[in-house]
Write a protein that binds this DNA or RNA. Structure first.
Lengths: 213, 213
DNA sequence: GCATCTCTAGAACGAACGCTCTATCCGGTA
DNA sequence: TACCGGATAGAGCGTTCGTTCTAGAGATGC
């Protein structure tokens, strides 16, 4: 059988999530499966037994690592999605010098991910956060922290030397960039078409350009 | 660890009753309750029995009017939310002459609605559509039609006489306006703060202005 | 050897799920 | 009066839910 010693997951390497994922600790497999399933089906649509089955772990293991039950697991899943997307965002943003061009590249990345999953894997935290809006404050807080982190990454890109964008403007712009990326990904997912993401990239780039000194 | 179900993870705050006043047909009460509950809790988080209870109807009535079960009811709920939001959008857009100013007014309307519901009632179709992404094509199509209708309303506003915005530009702009409104509402809901909506209004107005002749 | 601890394994519980079913009420028609 | 179809009413079906529980496997220390 699969004997995995408890090896605390170190700094998360930028790796795309997959359903089976052998070679990982039991805890890590559980979190990844939970993150992926809740991304697709939301909080209420995903059962603990489905997660344990998908992670090739048993119910006992799930409750061993997450005594707080489904809520605690959901928080870990959201935080996992947070880090995963932050890593991808950081990489894409670093790949282009001009902030506007970099945002367009982000839109392309989102569109590629959506299309590759047949339009079922949207934002890794939205579906989980939306279904637990008023009833699970810790899940919502984890989602809010994710949004804030992504916003900071965009802010840093907008404030890199040479852009000439004022700090206050950059702060607001970063907020709108994340909002628009989220909304465009949602619209693309619902309409099964990447047009909203292409339009969002074009317009965000133009908007950013209008703030440059 | 106490034995609770997903129904009450936190002490529920005093929420507006989903049960509409009398004077509406049974079918209408069912649709309205379904729309409101799914807006708050998503598709999987909302039970048919909960809907019938809130609507002050019985299970028999629900299945009498919706023989297709939960899915058929969800489609009707999404279409109801579609029309409801379209009416509000139409009214607000008509209240301002300048398209940019009108969009800012839309953001304010969304922020007011969110705050009034203690940040739990977001977009009336997003939560339902997101939880059924790959498994209920008819629900997804109803959501896509809603987005398209709203986009058309914005398009008409952008193309009203005197704006000087080209048709192709207006088409793309309308798409991004809806995406950004959706995303900003989502971000506002998650962070329990209307700042994303205020930033979105400011930036959308500026973006629209940049396309005027 | 024994003790101890972490982790795995899955049966079992009560509650809620979507849905089916039969029975009853009720206004309009014959 | 009898009848009939639309609407209401809810008990009950089988399934799944989140969670709890006990038992055992495997490594480590004495």
């Amino acid at each position: 059988m699969k004997t995995t010693t408890a090896q605390d997951e170190t700094a998360a390497p930028p790796r795309r999530a997959a359903a089976p994922a052998h070679g990982l600790s039991t805890r890590e497999r559980i979190v990844r499966s939970a993150s992926l399933l809740m991304q697709r089906q939301g909080y209420d649509g995903t059962g603990i037994k489905q997660i344990s089955r998908e992670a090739e772990a048993t119910l006992g293991s799930v409750y061993h690592f997450f005594p707080g039950g489904k809520q605690e697991l959901a928080v870990a899943a959201v935080q996992h999605g947070d880090q995963e997307f932050a890593d991808a965002l950081r990489e894409v943003l670093a790949g282009e010098d001009d902030p506007g061009v970099a945002i367009i590249a982000c839109c392309r990345m989102l569109a590629d991910g959506l299309r590759a999953s047949d339009w079922i894997e949207g934002c890794p935290v939205t579906a989980t956060a939306l279904g637990t809006a008023g009833r699970a404050p810790d899940i919502q807080q984890a989602a809010a922290e994710a949004f804030a982190r992504w916003q900071d990454l965009v802010f840093d890109k907008l404030r890199q030397p040479g852009t000439g964008i004022a700090e206050d403007d950059a702060r607001d712009l970063a907020c709108t960039v994340i909002s628009t990326l989220e909304g465009a990904e949602l619209a693309a997912q619902v309409s099964r078409d990447d047009q909203p993401l292409r339009a969002a990239g074009k317009h965000l780039s133009r908007l950013i350009g209008s703030y440059r000194a």
